[in-house]
Amino acid sequence: MTWKQLAEKVVEGYNITPDEALRILNEDDDNVLELIQSAFHIRKHYYGKKVKLNLIINAKSGLCPEDCGYCSQSMKADTEIDSYPLVSKKIIVDGAKEAKKNKIGTYCIVMSGRKPTNRDVDTVVQAVQDIKKDVDTMKICACLGLVNDAQAKLLKEAGVDRFNHNINTSKGHHSEITTTHDYEDRIRTLETLKSAGISPCSGVICGMGETLEDIVEMAFSLKELDADSIPVNFLHPIEGTKLAGMDDLTPLKCLKILAMFRFVNPTKEIRISGGREYNLRTLQSMGLYMANSIFVGDYLTTSGQASNQDHQMIKDLGFEIEENAFETESQQFAGV
């Protein structure tokens, strides 16, 4: 069966198997263009040629007690980054207003640390309430760590649309990346958010020493969790972290990973996230034939491509920025 034939089956409702997903990752580099075109058939069916833009505000930075090997904000890492407590409500709100001017559809409030205090949640709640009054068409995604039922309920009532909590890697590889929490902690948090009625956003970081089978497992785990938004990060090794010397990715491998995630999770928002510029390099635009969403601007502690370059990249592809974050949610199954 050709990739095009498989893509047509997926659009008709077929769920690909783990063996088929692994075959995507093992595809010869010479056949990547055919694979991309086939994945684009799926992407176009559900999302047309629209691209969602997401922006991060690093609302609380550094001083994290976790030992995640990829992260420069961990207290275990020997890095020089800006460390500060949660910023004021005004800074969060002003950031959202500025984001709207730059066609951002989803504004992501991110905090370092294992879990938020109730005071942290109160500040975020107040900020979100103010943002929703002024920018009601913008989606708000919070990424605050391990939240409990009561905190999740408050965030939902305030107007938080999504909550990001990545699985990061496969269950079997998790202990190689961090030991201060386990894989089940992340799954429980996602279930807590879903129970509160908040849309789950959960993704991965590829290039951390995992196998191709691990990457396939990640894609199917997110399918089982029914994550609405799936950020696919590619490791950007940072000096001073445990994974500083890791070099396991090429631009073509990244494209095959994005294609596989689209085949496995055809109806979901697939976002090219951290490490896009570092790993895809001159092939960044090719990723949008499979992903329908990107982060613009800077990431948490690494720099991103200038926003005007992202806008130009989208325009050059003949794609369109989706300014209303809620616009396609009701249309995505209509084949627009």
Rank of each mutant, 00 (worst) to 15 (best):
M218E: 10
K9S: 11
T250S: 13
S61M: 03
L249D: 09
E12Q: 14
S195F: 13
Y14T: 10
I294V: 12
K156I: 13
P231A: 07
K253Y: 08
K44C: 04
I187A: 03
L235C: 06
A158H: 14
F40W: 14
G287V: 12
G297Q: 13
K97L: 05
F326G: 00
P266W: 14
G48K: 01
D122I: 10
V121N: 07
N265L: 04
V216Q: 00
A77C: 06
D316A: 06
C143Y: 11
K115Q: 07
P18Q: 00
K97F: 03
Q331C: 04
L249K: 08
T189K: 05
G209C: 09
G62Q: 06
L288I: 12
Y289D: 05
E213Y: 14
D28T: 14
H45W: 15
L6H: 09
T189M: 08
F263K: 00
L193C: 08
K49W: 06
F319D: 01
L63C: 04
D185M: 11
S38Q: 01
E8T: 12
K60W: 13
Q309L: 07
K101D: 15
T241Y: 14
K268Y: 06
S170T: 11
C68F: 15
N168W: 06
T241S: 11
H174M: 04
L235T: 10
T328L: 10
S330E: 12
E184A: 06
L255G: 00
T179M: 11
N168A: 02
D298L: 02
C108N: 12
M260E: 00
M313P: 02
K153E: 13
D94I: 11
H311Y: 08
L258Q: 00
H311N: 05
S74Y: 15
C68W: 15
E239T: 10
S330P: 01
V11K: 15
G287W: 09
I91R: 09
V216R: 00
E323F: 02
K76F: 15
V135R: 11
I56S: 01
Q151M: 08
K133I: 13
K153G: 04
V147T: 13
D316M: 04
P18W: 00
N15F: 11
T267Q: 13
K76W: 15
N102I: 08
G159T: 14
S202F: 07
Y289R: 01
E80V: 08
E277W: 07
I238K: 10
I230E: 05
S175A: 15
K171F: 13
L249R: 10
T17A: 06
F220H: 04
E329P: 01
